[in-house]
Simulated scan of single mutants.
Amino acid sequence: MAKHNLVPLIILFLVVGILAAVGYVAYTIAQGVGKTTREKMERKHIAVTKDGMKVQVKGIRDEEYKDNTQSVLVNIWNHTSFPAYKSRLWDMSGKEGTAKKGAEKRKPHAK
């Protein structure tokens, strides 16, 4: 008779044990994925903290960044045309030798 009272208790312990094992495996996998993701992001100089995300720019100085940005903007300016715009200061038609007294073609900053 005592044997019949122990069967539900054994089944309960088995179910709880299986659920605990599945929960532990899921927790371990989630921690592993989080760790590898954090390591990959740190290699790309991105840090996630409880305050938020911090992105670091390494390998480029402020002066180099400004030079590159200025070079891109000057290239865009030099390759832009304004077909309906007539400037009083310089001729933007692209013809060399016309009224380009004070406005020379802009050159990018030399490195």
Rank of each mutant, 00 (worst) to 15 (best):
A2C: 09
K3E: 10
N5M: 15
L6R: 09
L6Q: 13
L6F: 08
V7H: 06
I10C: 02
L12N: 10
L14G: 05
L14D: 06
V15C: 00
V15G: 03
V16Y: 05
V16T: 02
V16H: 07
I18D: 08
I18T: 12
I18R: 12
A20C: 02
A21D: 04
G23F: 09
G23M: 08
Y24D: 00
A26Y: 04
Y27A: 02
T28L: 01
T28A: 07
A30K: 09
Q31R: 07
V33M: 04
K35S: 13
K35R: 04
T36N: 04
T37I: 12
R38S: 13
R38F: 07
E39D: 02
E39Y: 07
K40F: 14
K40W: 14
M41V: 09
M41I: 06
M41P: 04
E42Q: 15
I46F: 10
A47G: 07
A47S: 15
A47C: 06
V48Q: 09
V48H: 04
T49H: 11
T49N: 08
K50Y: 09
K50G: 04
M53Q: 11
K54T: 11
V55G: 07
V55Q: 05
V55I: 09
K58M: 11
G59K: 11
I60M: 14
R61V: 15
D62I: 13
D62E: 15
D62Y: 13
D62F: 14
E63P: 02
E64Q: 15
E64S: 12
Y65T: 14
K66P: 07
K66A: 14
D67L: 13
D67E: 15
D67P: 02
D67A: 11
N68A: 15
Q70A: 12
V72R: 03
L73S: 12
L73M: 12
V74A: 03
N75L: 11
I76D: 13
I76P: 03
W77T: 03
N78H: 13
H79M: 10
H79L: 03
T80V: 08
S81V: 05
S81M: 00
S81F: 03
F82T: 11
A84M: 11
A84W: 08
Y85E: 09
K86I: 13
K86T: 14
K86S: 08
R88E: 13
R88M: 10
M92T: 06
M92C: 10
S93H: 06
G94A: 00
K95W: 03
K95L: 09
K95C: 05
E96W: 08
E96S: 05
G97F: 03
G97Y: 10
T98C: 07
T98R: 09
K101E: 07
A103C: 08
A103T: 00
A103D: 04
E104T: 04
E104I: 03
E104P: 01
R106P: 07
R106E: 05
K107F: 04
H109K: 10
A110Y: 01
K111E: 10
